[in-house]
């Protein structure tokens, strides 16, 4: 025990030193050499594997984007043909063929659902994190527990509930449902965040005569900005990508009811229509259009996206 401790204590400075660790002792000269060969083969292997997976990710995506510049005959012919139709007509056509409407519908819904989710979620989380009252713990678990259950469990009654409010195939109906289903994660994350904020600032505001409401909106909420950003991005991505809820809730009731499909739903719809009217470049262009906002958000908020999404699982 004492020997290993001594040895590591003796070697520690050596390994930090500039290239002085080689020929100091007979036993240690062998080791770096061994490890070097092991390292080289492993490096080739692991770099190769890492690069392969990167190719597997990028290749299909790139291929799809390139395919929107092909003609229909080319797409049906061979997957490896090089695109020749280098115009943006196909994107205009895709936009006109419904993608534009689906895109607008999605933006309208998210413009309300994401800010409202953040507002309601932080209000509930703040009260639960900062105020003592009977039933506090119960309410917290009540909110957070909802994340445990699959959305399928609620689907059938949810449909009839929204119908009873007369809000099937309406923006407001879907917005309210989105807010409700984003509650568990938002409350969970913001609750943890409000707990970490210092109490002193809040106390100072209250002593200066701010009401509880004012202290929340003017002091606590601005302090919670980093948390709000992470959770906001998480919710925006989640709601943008939501599929089952719009499929169930946003079907036209009859012929006079306008179609208000969201982007995800619309893309699948376009794909399933392919059997009748084959215009695959339009479908691929539609997917490309749908990917662009995701790519932009992801690349510009890369760190927050990753921490926001993974924070959801670190319960």
């Amino acid at each position: 025990m004492s020997i290993t401790a001594k040895e590591s204590a003796a070697t520690e400075p050596g390994s930090d030193g500039p290239r002085g660790d080689g020929p100091k002792s007979g036993r240690r000269t062998l080791r770096p050499g061994d490890r070097a060969t092991e390292g080289i083969t492993l490096n080739v292997f692991s770099h190769g594997f890492l690069a392969l997976w990167a190719v597997l990710i990028v290749l299909p995506l790139l291929w799809l984007v390139l395919s929107s510049f092909k003609t229909d005959a080319q797409i049906g012919g061979s997957a490896l043909s090089w695109p020749t139709n280098w115009t943006f007509d196909v994107f205009v056509r895709a936009w006109d063929k419904g993608i534009g409407d689906y895109f607008t519908n999605t933006v309208i819904v998210l413009a309300f659902s994401v800010p409202l989710t953040m507002l309601f979620g932080s209000m509930a989380a703040y009260v639960l994190a900062r105020y003592e009252f009977p039933g506090n713990r119960f309410l917290y678990f009540f909110f957070v527990g909802g994340a445990m259950f699959p959305v399928f469990l609620a689907l059938v009654p949810l449909y009839f509930m929204v119908e009873r409010f007369g809000m099937l195939n309406t923006y407001q109906g879907l917005i309210l449902v989105y807010i409700a289903y984003s509650m568990p994660f938002t409350v969970f994350f913001m609750h943890a965040f409000f707990r970490t904020l210092p109490t002193a600032v809040h106390e100072a505001a209250v002593i200066d005569g701010a009401s509880h409401t004012r202290a929340f909106f003017q002091v606590m909420l601005p302090m919670a900005k980093p948390g709000l950003l992470s959770v906001g991005i998480f919710n925006a991505l989640g709601q943008w990508n939501q599929y089952i809820l719009p499929v169930v809730l946003m079907q036209p009731r009859d012929n006079s009811d306008p179609e208000r499909y969201l982007l995800t739903q619309g893309l699948v719809q376009l794909q399933q229509q392919q059997g009748y009217a084959s215009d695959l470049p339009v479908l691929f262009a539609g997917v490309t259009i749908a990917m662009i906002p995701m790519l932009v958000v992801y690349l510009s908020f890369q760190r927050q996206v990753q921490s926001g999404l993974t924070a959801g699982t670190l319960k």
């Binding site: 997976w53 990167a54 990710i57 990028v58 290749l59 299909p60 995506l61 291929w63 799809l64 395919s67 797409i75 049906g76 012919g77 061979s78 997957a79 991505l237 943008w240 990508n241 939501q242 599929y243 982007l263 995800t264 739903q265 893309l267 699948v268 794909q271 695959l280 479908l283 691929f284 997917v287 749908a290 990917m291 995701m294 790519l295 958000v297 992801y298 690349l299 890369q302 996206v305 990753q306 999404l309």
Partner: peptide, 30 residues
């Protein structure tokens, strides 16, 4: 890390179209 994580931000609907094309049952499939 940036490349590997990217599929996660794509919606499943996009994946469905993408892999529908990849798995196409003729030579047009990737």
């Amino acid at each position: 890390k940036i490349v590997y994580f990217f599929p996660q931000v794509l919606s499943l609907a996009i994946l469905a179209v993408l892999f529908g094309a990849v798995y196409r049952s003729d030579q047009g499939g990737l």
